[in-house]
Amino acid sequence: MKKVDLREKVLTANDKIARKNREKFSETGTLVLNLVSSPGSGKTALIEETVKALKGEYKIFVITGDLMTENDARRVARHGVDAVQISTGDACHLNARMVDARLTDKGTLYDLVIVENVGNLVCPAPYDLGEDFKVLLVAVGEGDDKPVKYPPMVRASEVLVITKTDLVPYTDSDPARIKANALKIRPDLKVFQVSVKTPEGLDEWTSWLSSRLKAKKQTAQGK
């Protein structure tokens, strides 16, 4: 038996495509978000509100990932922005190649690309899509200790959005506890609390996003 010393990262192929995606987006100053959460935490609803608030000022493209159906892309497209669905069949996460195939050529025409990953708090964590950052959503009522139960996803995310805060009176859930649990895993997380119904916190979220969009655009123009 001969031993071949390899030391090769298993996700090298994915990471290469992700790097290529990221380079293209940084040339045009396109901000790319990768939304991750359990199924049902409100990713699509947050995207709808984000799109409504920002579509006047920015060109937005949305990619939604699910195993089956085009429901989410249709929901988003109603708001007059370009949206495409990735139906993964059985796959539990999106990878960089899927994003590249739908996007890279025209993705650079947009200011903001929002990728809604498959609802899953485990598998999307190690897959870089070429995004600027992952946004983790945890809904009120899904378990305040969710962040400490799924540390790799919290570690991989830069932003936490606690959703459905309008449900607080009807549950034993406390957004402050969700936040504290998440900060135990990643103390530098940027945290928002939103409700798409009331609409608490949405302005704060969209203005922050808008400032990140401008910053990215400026960096690209400065090159």
């Binding site: 001969k2 090769e8 790799p152």
Partner: peptide, 22 residues
């Protein structure tokens, strides 16, 4: 007692070595 850290090892998924025979 802080929990703010950079990961040095612990997140890797890599192939170290392959044994082959001819």
């Amino acid at each position: 007692g802080s929990t703010d850290f950079d990961m040095i090892t612990g997140s890797e998924i890599s192939i170290r070595e392959v044994e082959i025979e001819s």
